[in-house]
Amino acid sequence: MYGYLLKRVLMLFPLFIGITLITFVVIHLAPGEPVEMQTALNPKASAKTRQRMREFYGLDKPLHIQYVNWLGRLVKLDFGRSFAPDGRPVIKKISERIPVTLSINFIALVLEFGLAIPIGILAATHRNSIIDKGITLLVFLGFAVPTFWLSLLMMYLFGVKLGWLPISGLHSLGAAKMSTLAWLIDSAKHLILPLGVATFGSLAGLSRYTRSTMIEVIGQDFITTARAKGLSERVVIYRHALRNALLPIITILGFSLPGLIGGSVIFETIFAIPGMGQLFYMGVMSRDYPLVMGILVIGAFLTLIGNLFADLAYAVADPRIRHAKT
């Protein structure tokens, strides 16, 4: 177990280098430089000014030197300054957005797991019944529906036609002056649509997965034994089968953790939510290299850590792995 842990932690270093390398290469594939974006619209910018700006951003050095310099600063958590006119440090910009995205995605994740697992169990225990078929249909819709389209339709239906829900942002104007209760209700109203659409889209995969895992577990000998002992179906399903089916589901949870920070470009753009996805989209559109690189590296690194924790949780939950000699 400890040997395994040590190996996994040591492996983080080469993987981290790989992440930074890919990020760097991807960003520098692009023709044209941010300097040109900033000077193209300004006829007064002479060749000299451009040169000064390139030096200022360190773009005049060879690529490998740029990479090493950047890596050196990364280790100190210095992601540089944004190319945007405000020129604020990237890490500040990101840390402002994280709480928004994190809290929204956390609620979405809780909803997703809270709904998908019971749905999957229901489908597995009522296999090939109307319930199962209905759920399967819903799952297929969830897989296939383009979330941006569903968002548009919901905004139209609930926001424009019925006028029940606000369609953009996180708060109404003047939310700051509201009482706590009114503020909470206001926020909740703003969140219903994005959360609803996000949950519907993500339910599909997990409920389907829970269903197939449960069916597999239910087919095993120890379940037959449990039934043969005369245990009630409730105990058999929820005590014996579910516990074993939960193992692979934990892995999925681990994979979802990094998504908490990632945020969704599409949702945040459509619903005008000031989170990470929106920040990334804006950064990409204005070729804000330091910002884009910062978000990519942070996002990928958190995924790496998330996977590590998922594997550890898996090892802790499964005695076969916990006691294995590696």
């Binding site: 492996m11 790989g18 992440i19 991807v26 594939l29 692009a30 989209y281 990409v284 690194f301 996977n307």
Partner: peptide, 21 residues
Amino acid sequence: RTVDIMLCFPTFFLILAVIAM
């Protein structure tokens, strides 16, 4: 390990970055 590294990136972010650049 290359697969592991590639899987760490939120795919849509990566695609967006490259296409927009």
